[in-house]
Design a protein around this nucleic acid. Structure first.
Lengths: 183, 183
DNA sequence: AGGTGCATGTAACAGGTTACATGATTAA
DNA sequence: TTAATCATGTAACCTGTTACATGCACCT
């Protein structure tokens, strides 16, 4: 199993284990607090994938009987490290997918022009929520040249740009509505 | 069938028909030249969905026997118009999904720091390609307050911001690599 | 005694892509 | 005649979500 055959979720899992996360539960936690905005994962994917990765020899799990119910801590095998590294250094075409219902509505908004303002406001409020979440994550200010740090910087800059765009668009619409005369 | 039950692809189809597109083929064409970057659709979705929408009474198709093979031109029924309008003016939570493998690699890049520069360059080259495509679409300069025009403006601004971010990040990394001394 | 968080897991479903099959029209 | 473009359609597959089931540990 090399990088080319590594499933999308498999890559996230390998990466998270490399960052020190051990159990499926912990992986899900970290995904929800970090990569979620640009790469999500659900339990329904994570647990079956952990099993597949172990069958493929990329990770090795051992039950930790710390008193309670068995929890399984995974770590990378040498092959797993190599697969992760191969993926990271591969120049295969990247997956860039997006489904943005806000933009879709905007695209069709000429059909109902009076809804435009509300749509942009809805979009802005989404990104403002996202900004707040990212700020919460960013409490501990990691270096801008570390992976998670860079990603956070990118994400925050992006949502801030989007919020600015919305504000300007709202302004433009308001001006247009009052016949070009600023209120 | 009201807006709440309208499937994602159904919304795109309804919108495209409202914008004047009639056949499944034409809808796919327009999607590929416009909404693709923030909302894609494949034939495998479009044709079955056209049938479902017709069964639901939202659109009505009639075969156009312009000589050759029957092609089917659809138009909105009054209920279809209403469903589209309902969706556009609804304040139900919006779908915002993203899978960005570039950011994912960046997130894990501390595992292989020497790949960082290449990753950011790959990301930039993706967005530069996208910018070129958007510029090609934007040949006819539509008003910034029309739906497609606004969306194009938003998309272009976004990719330009991303390209700038990449350039700055590349700079920062290059500087860090030479021990803080600019080359 | 009950709620919350840790922890694992699966079955049913939804949504979408890819590859293929088919065939007419049009331009070189 | 051949290639490209217009045009419709489906079956197999893949990926992922949602909702549920289970149960321990810890706090109040």
């Amino acid at each position: 199993m090399d990088a080319a055959q590594l499933s999308p979720t498999g890559r996230v899992i390998l990466g998270m284990i490399a960052l020190g996360r051990r159990t499926g539960y912990e992986i899900k936690q970290l995904v929800d607090h970090s990569t979620r905005h640009f790469w999500a994962a659900s339990y329904g994917q994570i647990y079956p994938e952990l099993r597949r990765l172990e069958e493929g020899g990329l990770i090795k799990g051992r039950p930790e009987g710390s008193g309670g119910r068995t929890k399984i801590a995974y770590e990378l095998t040498p092959e797993g490290s190599r697969a992760l590294y191969d993926w990271l250094s591969s120049d295969a075409p990247l997956v860039f997918e997006m489904r943005n219902e806000g933009m879709l509505k905007l695209f069709f908004s000429d059909v109902a022009p009076e809804t435009k303002l509300a749509q942009i406001r809805a979009m802005r409020s989404h990104y403002e929520r996202q900004r707040a979440e990212l700020h919460a994550i960013g409490k501990d200010p990691s270096e801008m040249t570390t992976g998670p740090g860079m990603t956070l910087d990118l994400g925050l800059g992006l949502v801030e740009w989007l919020i600015e765009w919305c504000l300007k668009a709202e302004d433009r619409l308001a001006t247009a509505a009052t016949g070009g005369v600023k209120a």
